[in-house]
């Protein structure tokens, strides 16, 4: 028979066996909520899942126009069209930003659950992380179609090789990073609603901070410029090291190497990916602890 003890949790006993038992018991809730989110997003809309394709596509068209005709960016290789260079990066980034935005506000929008029933709260921010994978999958299909198109029409632009095997790991890293940040943000947002605004700025900032509209090979040049601007000698190396721990950099460069290949993207940026994985793991584990420690007050502050 179930035996349950309810008392104030001490901060040092954040996880117990019971938490995992509970989580297993409520796995059907997680599945149902994901289904709900997937079903509901495009209900009563004309093109439905077409939006999942259109969002990154429109952005890509805008960027391609902007960065080929207005402000030119020095590219890694003249053979890779800007459109494909950009879209390969936009697909994972769109997933990250939409999952993060939805997850940050998830506890607030599901407030009625939190104040009326018990279930492991961590399910709530996980739901959008999984649900947005559907959009991501659709966008990936479009990306695949685009790669095929360029492969046949622009010879030498795409050269897929064994590096594509890295792709599953890169996607796992992307999901883990999105979840890690979301755990922090959602737990904070229920108490400090400012996070809902901050997350919009952050997504915009990260869009330019990540190598989406500029090639990662230009980062050395950017770091030198920052050094000059700060007026501090010899910090460009430090900036580069710090930047390598930014998971999106490794993920996006990794996507390019796996999917575009060719002479410009022949070598997997392993250092970037390893450093990114380390920071992702730290963010995720501490995120889980942070969420857990805040969990007990959700119903009181919601």
């Amino acid at each position: 028979m179930d035996h349950l003890k309810i008392k104030k949790r001490q901060t040092w006993q954040l996880f117990s066996k019971r938490d995992f038992v509970d989580l297993m018991k409520y796995k059907d809730l997680l599945i149902t909520l994901v289904k709900r989110d997937v079903n509901v997003v495009y209900k009563q809309s004309v093109i439905g899942f077409g939006w999942a394709v259109l969002k990154p596509l429109v952005q890509m068209v805008i960027f391609t126009f902007l960065f080929t005709y207005i402000a030119t960016v020095e590219m890694d290789s003249s053979t890779v069209p800007f459109a494909i260079f950009n879209f390969v990066a936009l697909v994972p980034f769109t997933y990250f930003s939409s999952a993060l935005t939805a997850s940050t506000s998830s506890l607030i929008s599901n407030e009625s659950f939190i104040t009326k029933v018990y279930f492991p709260r961590v399910i709530i921010p996980i739901v959008p992380i999984i649900a947005k994978l559907v959009d991501f999958g659709i966008a990936m299909l479009v990306l695949g179609a685009m790669l095929f198109y360029y492969y046949y029409t622009v010879p030498g632009s795409i050269e897929i090789n064994y590096n594509i095997l890295y792709l599953p790991f890169l996607i796992i890293l992307l999901v883990a990073f999105s979840l890690g940040i979301s755990l922090w943000f959602s737990a904070l947002a229920i108490q400090y609603r400012d996070l809902n605004q901050i997350v919009n700025f952050l997504a915009q900032f990260l869009m330019y901070a990540a190598p989406i509209v500029w090639p990662f090979s230009r980062f050395g040049y950017i770091a030198d410029n920052i050094e000059k601007w700060c007026g501090m000698k010899g910090i460009s190396g430090t900036i580069e090291t710090i930047y390598s721990f930014f998971p999106l950099a490794g993920i996006i460069e990794g996507f390019r190497v796996s999917l575009i290949g060719g002479s410009a993207y022949s070598k997997m940026p392993t250092e970037l990916i390893i450093n990114g994985s380390i920071s992702t793991l730290i963010i995720l584990i501490f995120g889980l602890y942070f969420f857990r420690s805040k969990e007990s007050i959700f119903a009181d502050v919601a």
Partner: peptide, 21 residues
């Protein structure tokens, strides 16, 4: 009721429940 159904945590004290709630 909220404390009993684990929606919110008690500040002091404890509850023991045997069975599915």
């Amino acid at each position: 009721l909220k404390v009993l159904s684990r929606i919110t945590e008690p500040t002091f004290g404890e509850i023991e429940i045997k069975g599915r709630v």
